[in-house]
């Protein structure tokens, strides 16, 4: 199933074009890394696709599987969050809000799903800890657990590896891979880390305001555009 279909997407910041005429299609269950230099429009495009930023023109259509309607978004951390008094369990449970229309209380299924995703990411022992007292890597895991608790059909991650040491990034990547393979959840993430992106993902999307390349890592290596970027 084609899950994300982008047609001629253009986005602007003030009158300055940030994303220009980008078209691509992502299938359900694919693991796609958006790479490109700083300021190439990666995060902006991701936010545009998720409806968090207005688009100038073009069409975005997202088809979600029936049983997994939510989009689990893992944003870049804000200053507000770093010092936020909340327990890990409270944060992860809030992921379940994504499936609620009118009733805003958590039921048994929600609580179980929150516990499951804590378990899956190996942070069950942190659940009573305060979010603000965790290390950067632990906080990232908590945010991923929250995204998983929403029972997502699509995980959208914005630079999830910022501030992680190499060992923690590697671990994070293998967790993502596992989630992608075992649960068939589509993953769309922006990343600086070209080498891990090449080894982990199904598709590479190279953005430099325009779409420079979209295809498998193998094809990307053969393409001229990668020569400047992959070293």
């Amino acid at each position: 199933m084609d899950q994300i279909i982008i047609k001629k997407l253009t986005m602007q910041y003030d009158s300055y074009p940030v994303v220009c005429d980008v078209s691509f299609t992502i299938k359900q269950g694919e693991y796609v890394c958006i790479i490109g230099e700083n300021g190439a429009g990666k995060s902006t495009m991701l936010k545009g696709i998720l409806g968090l930023k207005p688009i100038k023109s073009g069409a975005i259509s997202i088809n979600m599987p029936k049983d997994k309607k939510a989009i689990g978004y893992m944003p870049q951390q804000t200053d507000i969050q770093r010092d936020f008094p909340a327990s890990v369990y409270e944060v992860v449970l809030s992921g379940c809000l994504c499936n609620k229309k009118f009733i805003s209380f958590y039921n048994k299924t929600d609580k179980q799903r929150a516990l499951d995703s804590l378990d899956k990411l190996g942070i069950m022992n942190l659940r009573h800890k305060s979010y603000r007292n965790l290390s950067g890597g632990q906080q990232q895991r908590v945010l991923l657990a929250r995204a998983l608790a929403s029972n997502p059909g699509l995980l959208a991650l914005d630079e999830p590896l910022t501030g992680l040491d190499p060992a923690a990034s590697l671990e994070f990547y293998s967790m993502l891979r596992k989630i992608n393979k075992e649960q068939g959840i589509t993953i769309l993430m922006t990343s600086h880390d070209i080498h891990s992106a090449m080894s982990q993902s199904d598709k590479i999307l190279h953005l430099s305001h325009k779409l420079e390349f979209f295809g498998t890592p193998e094809e990307y290596l053969k393409n001229d555009i990668s020569k400047k970027f992959v070293r």
């Binding site: 998720l50 409806g51 968090l52 989009i71 969050q81 909340a86 809000l97 958590y106 929250r146 995204a147």
Partner: peptide, 22 residues
């Protein structure tokens, strides 16, 4: 009290909630 949970969600992370359809 009725909207305690979504108020927490929106306070903690507006973008996550918005992307999730809140």
């Amino acid at each position: 009290l009725i909207f305690y949970n979504p108020l927490f969600g929106v306070t903690f992370d507006e973008n996550f909630s918005k992307a999730g359809g809140v």
